[in-house]
Write a protein that binds this DNA or RNA. Structure first.
Length: 490
DNA sequence: ATGTGC
């Protein structure tokens, strides 16, 4: 005797999706509902189809209900993911000076299902995934390209109790010390690397990727890289007498450095963004915003590796600053430093979130940071105001006005030389793509963020070192072993 | 930003 009339064909007609749902439903019916009337079964199947969530613990249809669960609802598992149709709202500082591409990237990021809060800083420009100058808070998700390629890129300032006129009077001495304490160049490595506790971290041994990167990381420890990275002496003016303990208002010599985590961070970023993109395919422009959750293996690994790269970047600065302090025969009165490419666990609006700052300075209430200008324009020592709308963030610089290629085409060496002379700046290395004209007016950018930070002092560059033409691999033949030419000899 | 290959 035929017990009922439920077949694959009838299930299809009711609207059940093909494999694996139909076979699972058929099996459940055959196993558990052999003697149930067809009409009753049909009623149950309709209810199942309409609201599978009511059957997740059902004795008959639990498995079928799980298979019916729409995959897009679960943003923490692999596969294709849709953007929300409406993004979270976010504050934009200095909107009139921000290029359309950066705006568009931020609007895309705002539509991520994991997005909680965001903001766009006044120095924003187009990047890869999240724009440079983009801040994004997410729920339990870390976006490798929301941190950026140069993980832990940061500023570090030492303030020495020396009158800044010495930078002019003893220019050759300070120039020599700067050259001796630093190593610039893409791929540059020390022949006799420094030692630092960061290299003893057992995290290097926890992951095969980090193990493979450890030796080069050691050889690059204390180096600065290329691009917009620099090491410079300048005149520090402290205007706020109350903020820095042991540093009264007045003028000092400062050593300011800007660099990141070299090949270590770049390779961590490349590895985990690739993994994230495999795990979570996002549509169109959002593809580079693929994330990892903190409770999955890859996400936990990235978090660990990112923090190591942050510690490593910090160590690189400290090595430079220690070399200089030793040569000056002085301890700095104070040091100020901050990452501006990183992700932090923070509380925002009462919720624990992951805050990505990709080219943005942490600016929670009372937090100190450094916002550089250009090689001739002043940078600023700032204290955060804890503005919620900016997700406790501020800009990380003036922001580019011209792309590198545009700067190379439009700026002449003569104009650059004249500008350096006008500001009394001595430049070591550096290219036209880093010329002051390629950057926005830092004073105007600071005006856009008066609600985000208070200025407690400034830094006027005097002797600036950047990566020179000779250290730029891309200027040479592609197959040339360029890095051997400028490895430091110590 | 890095320094090697989609």
């Amino acid at each position: 005797m035929k017990s009922n009339i439920i077949t694959a064909k009838s299930l299809r007609a009711m609207g059940f999706p093909e494999s694996p749902v139909i076979p699972v439903v058929l099996e459940a019916v055959k196993k558990h509902l052999k003697h149930t009337a067809s009409a009753d079964i049909e009623a149950q199947l309709k209810a199942l189809l309409q609201a599978p969530e009511n059957f997740y613990n059902d004795s008959v249809f639990a498995t079928a209900a799980q298979k019916l669960k729409p995959p897009v609802e679960d943003t923490t598992t692999g596969g294709d993911i849709s953007l929300n149709s409406t993004g979270i709202s976010f504050a934009i500082y200095g909107a009139s000076g921000i290029e359309a591409g950066a705006m568009h990237q931020m609007y895309t990021a705002a539509k991520l299902p994991v997005a909680v809060a965001g903001a766009l800083m006044p120095d924003a420009h187009q990047g890869y995934g999240l724009p440079i100058g983009g801040v994004l808070a997410t729920n339990n998700a870390v976006i490798p390209y929301g941190v950026g390629v140069d993980i832990g890129c940061r500023m570090c300032l030492s303030i020495f109790d020396i009158v800044p006129t010495e930078l002019v009077q003893r220019e050759n001495f300070f120039t020599r010390e700067l050259l001796e304490a630093t190593l610039f160049g893409s791929g540059a490595q020390f022949k006799q690397p420094a030692n630092h506790a960061v290299m003893d971290s057992d995290v290097f041994d926890a992951l095969p990727l980090l193990k493979s990167l450890k030796d080069r990381a050691w050889r690059q420890l204390g180096s600065s890289g290329s691009g917009n990275h620099f090491a410079e002496f300048g005149a520090v003016h402290i205007v706020d007498a109350d903020t820095l303990p042991g540093v009264p208002a007045g003028t000092y010599i400062g050593l300011l450095t800007h660099s990141g985590s070299r090949a270590l961070g770049a390779n961590i970023a490349a590895h985990y963004t690739k993994l994230a993109k495999q795990l979570r395919r996002l549509p169109g422009d959002a593809a580079n915003l693929a994330w990892l959750t903190l409770d999955e293996e890859a996400g936990a690994e990235y978090w660990m590796a990112m923090n190591l790269a942050g510690d490593y970047a910090s160590a690189c600065h400290h090595i430079i600053h220690a070399k200089v302090a030793r040569q000056l025969g002085r301890r700095p009165l104070t040091m100020i430093e901050n990452h501006h490419n990183f992700a932090w666990k923070e509380t925002w609006n009462g919720q624990e979130v992951i805050v990505h700052r990709k080219g943005a300075t942490p600016a929670a209430a009372g937090v100190l940071g450094i916002i550089p200008g250009s090689m001739t324009a002043p940078g600023y020592i700032v204290k955060g105001r804890g503005e919620m709308a900016s997700v406790n963030s501020a800009s990380h610089g003036a922001g580019r006005l011209m792309s590198r290629s545009k700067a190379m085409q439009n700026i002449t060496h003569e104009a650059m030389k004249a500008e350096l002379k006008k500001h009394g700046v001595k430049l070591l290395g550096g290219g036209l793509d880093e010329a002051p004209f390629a950057y926005k007016d830092i004073q105007a950018v600071m005006q856009e963020q008066t609600s985000l930070v208070d200025i407690i002092g400034s830094f006027q560059p005097k002797i600036v070192q950047m990566c020179g033409d000779a250290q730029r691999g891309w200027r040479r033949g592609p197959r040339e072993k360029w890095h051997n030419d400028f490895v430091e000899g110590e």
